[in-house]
Measured scan of single mutants.
Amino acid sequence: MDPFVVLVLCLSCLLLLSIWRQSSGRGKLPPGPTPLPVIGNILQIDIKDVSKSLTNLSKIYGPVFTLYFGLERMVVLHGYEVVKEALIDLGEEFSGRGHFPLAERANRGFGIVFSNGKRWKEIRRFSLMTLRNFGMGKRSIEDRVQEEARCLVEELRKTKASPCDPTFILGCAPCNVICSIIFQKRFDYKDQQFLNLMEKLNENIRIVSTPWIQICNNFPTIIDYFPGTHNKLLKNLAFMESDILEKVKEHQESMDINNPRDFIDCFLIKMEKEKQNQQSEFTIENLVITAADLLGAGTETTSTTLRYALLLLLKHPEVTAKVQEEIERVIGRNRSPCMQDRGHMPYTDAVVHEVQRYIDLIPTSLPHAVTCDVKFRNYLIPKGTTILTSLTSVLHDNKEFPNPEMFDPRHFLDEGGNFKKSNYFMPFSAGKRICVGEGLARMELFLFLTFILQNFNLKSLIDPKDLDTTPVVNGFASVPPFYQLCFIPV
């Protein structure tokens, strides 16, 4: 058959498939802009700032609406009420993970971030239990974070109060905490193996944040037939998995079943207990991918939040002064901060919360999916439909947070200066898919920041009023603009 005829037939089939998918069930789905064949609503979305586009569309179609990214149908949730109703009140029905062709290629359905069903539930339950087990290797997770915080302070001392970009050092600290939990080992910041790991993690975040990856996920045929950065992403992930597998083999040879040292040991012990169960989800494949998931999810998000926190503290020296006064009063100079201190430091706690609220790190979270046909607000959402959640619409709700575009710790303080919780605080998402490392991340943010401010004054290279804190939105995360500062020993 003539190649031209084959091409026309293929394009015609794709067009018909697109029209059929977009028209099927439209009477039951939430409203939304009319999609174009094949490309859907992509032309109506700013790929570099999806969150802003969703906010604009919500003003037209309401808090629940339908979009098509290519052939992929998505239902968008915008605003606290619908997000709570879906992710919390109907948590089980909305607990699936959205379709990610690239991740599915890399992870093969294993791990904790992109798995679904029984596998996801069992691996998540085990990971939560293990991360909360403060007795691994007779050292609590808090001990590990405190140790890394001391190392971080010593690295900052080496800058000798000269101007520096904190990106690298602030990236090393949370990565080392995860390494300590998974591998029972922290690395020197100049260790070549550690630097290679950091390089792969950072490069992957840069790649994932590009519009090209959005295109690959919406048109998965590209993955096999086109060159691009997605190939580098898959190569980096394969490198990390190979490295983790080597460490798993080392653990198998040296493990003491009665004295687990780290996450890998705990997983291997669980595998041993379930070795007679042919349906067990505790396999080497799941261990390797879960460890890679924890490394990827637990490094860049925390380091970016820390980097943004220091920029905001530079911009608002009056806030920094209040935090340091609270540190001096509650902790002093002669001991290290600990998590028990947080309950006695409402202002510092409010500042950490406000940093996370203000920066809105992951504006749309990772997409969910419905696990069955769901009736939601008089609409029928078919099983498997991807759910896109606007966390921006919750964290920047102007009824809950007056002047949401302003950095103001009073958003989390009552009139008496006591810490005030808010149900709208969802930087880790909400419901059954809430970030498994939430507790660890909150511990790291509090301890790293208090250790830094206990030991250093922060000095800006320019007038604080002239510092730009506008986030650089890159399609996946909101990151701070480049800046330098000086760490002046107190």
Rank of each mutant, 00 (worst) to 15 (best):
D89L: 08
N455M: 05
N259T: 06
L54I: 13
F476A: 14
R119S: 09
H353V: 03
L197F: 10
E400S: 06
I462E: 15
T283N: 11
R124H: 03
K399L: 11
P471D: 05
D256L: 06
V8G: 13
I359V: 08
W120L: 04
N277R: 12
E122A: 13
V323C: 13
N398L: 10
P427E: 02
S162V: 11
L7I: 08
L7E: 00
A292I: 11
T371V: 10
G431N: 01
T229Y: 13
L312M: 12
L7C: 09
L43K: 06
Q22T: 12
A350H: 01
E246N: 15
S209P: 06
H316L: 05
K84Y: 08
M271F: 15
R119Y: 05
G416T: 14
S390C: 06
M255C: 12
F282L: 07
V83N: 05
F94V: 03
P402T: 15
D341E: 03
D341W: 04
N107L: 10
D360F: 01
N133L: 08
A149Q: 00
Q184E: 15
P37V: 00
G431V: 02
F226P: 04
R333A: 15
L294Q: 01
F69R: 09
V323K: 00
C179G: 07
T392W: 04
E328Y: 10
T167F: 06
S51F: 03
H99Y: 11
Q278V: 14
K420F: 05
K48L: 08
F239L: 14
F134Q: 15
F456P: 02
T159R: 06
F94H: 01
V208R: 14
V6T: 15
V76H: 01
N41D: 03
S95G: 12
R125K: 15
C13A: 15
R342I: 14
V177A: 06
H99A: 11
L7F: 12
I387H: 00
F94S: 02
C216T: 09
M74R: 07
T66G: 02
S280P: 06
I359T: 09
I178Y: 03
G96D: 06
L294T: 02
I222K: 04
S336L: 12
V472P: 10
T364K: 06
I462F: 11
A297W: 13
Y308G: 07
V8D: 00
P471G: 08
E354I: 02
L268K: 01
A321H: 11
G437S: 03
E318G: 07
N418G: 09
G343N: 12
F194P: 03
Q184R: 10
A321T: 14
L131I: 12
S429F: 02
D243G: 13
A309C: 10
T159M: 13
S336V: 13
K28H: 14
T210M: 11
G32L: 00
P464G: 09
V394W: 02
L380D: 12
T302W: 01
L195H: 14
S393E: 01
L312N: 03
D191M: 03
L15E: 01
Y80R: 06
E92V: 08
F168S: 14
L445P: 03
L461N: 13
D360M: 03
Q192P: 10
E438M: 09
Q324P: 00
L15R: 03
R139I: 11
Q278L: 13
G384D: 08
D468V: 10
K59P: 02
Y189A: 05
A173Q: 00
F267K: 01
K247R: 14
V473I: 12
G417N: 15
Y347R: 01
L395P: 03
R105T: 07
L413M: 10
V319N: 04
K232F: 06
T320I: 10
E253G: 10
E104C: 10
E444I: 04
K235C: 08
R186E: 03
H368L: 05
S53H: 04
L314G: 08
N474G: 14
Q252D: 05
H316I: 03
G40Q: 01
I452S: 03
S429R: 02
L395T: 04
S254K: 10
R433C: 04
G70Q: 02
F194L: 14
T66A: 03
T66R: 04
L268C: 06
A430K: 05
E81V: 05
K200N: 04
V64T: 04
Y424V: 02
E142G: 07
H368F: 04
E318C: 12
V473D: 15
L413N: 02
R124F: 00
K432P: 15
I284K: 08
L131E: 03
Q214P: 08
L458P: 08
I362N: 10
S242E: 15
I182P: 01
I141W: 15
S115N: 06
S140R: 07
T469I: 15
I327K: 00
I182T: 06
V82A: 13
N107Y: 09
T210C: 14
S140H: 08
M339H: 09
K270A: 12
L152K: 00
L16T: 03
G431H: 02
D191G: 05
R410A: 13
V319G: 01
L170Q: 00
D262P: 01
D89Q: 05
G135R: 15
F487I: 04
E253W: 09
G98L: 05
E104G: 06
H411N: 06
V479D: 10
L9P: 04
K273Q: 15
I284L: 14
C338T: 15
T364F: 14
D414F: 06
K235P: 04
I264Y: 01
S23I: 09
T299S: 14
P30C: 03
I213C: 11
D341I: 04
F482D: 14
E281R: 06
I39G: 05
I60E: 11
L54G: 02
P367N: 06
P363K: 03
N56S: 12
G431A: 02
F263V: 04
D46G: 13
F239P: 04
L366S: 03
G475L: 12
F110R: 12
C338P: 01
M240Q: 05
G343M: 10
P481T: 09
H411I: 02
K420T: 08
K322L: 12
E325S: 13
T299Q: 07
P363L: 01
F407G: 00
P346R: 04
I359C: 15
V436G: 05
R157P: 00
R307V: 11
D188H: 10
I331N: 00
Q193P: 12
M136P: 14
E246L: 14
Q252E: 10
V8M: 12
F94Q: 02
E274P: 05
C372Q: 13
V208T: 08
P37C: 02
G70V: 03
N398Q: 08
H316E: 06
A369R: 14
G111T: 03
I112V: 12
G135I: 14
S162P: 01
Y225G: 06
E203R: 05
L237K: 15
L71V: 14
Q146T: 13
E246Q: 11
V319D: 05
N474Y: 08
P37L: 02
C164K: 06
I462Y: 12
K432T: 13
K315G: 00
T450M: 05
L467K: 05
V75Y: 01
P402A: 14
K275Y: 08
L54M: 10
S242Q: 15
I205Y: 09
K270P: 02
C175F: 11
E142S: 08
K121R: 12
I257R: 11
I331Q: 01
S180I: 05
I112R: 05
I264D: 01
S140F: 07
I269C: 10
I284N: 07
T392R: 11
I207Q: 06
R186D: 02
M339L: 15
F226Y: 06
A309E: 01
T229K: 15
T301F: 13
V5R: 06
H78A: 09
K158P: 00
C179K: 04
S336G: 09
E300A: 12
L287T: 04
V50Y: 14
F183A: 07
N41V: 00
K84M: 09
D262H: 02
Q22I: 12
E154W: 07
S336N: 14
T283I: 07
L395F: 02
A103T: 09
T301G: 13
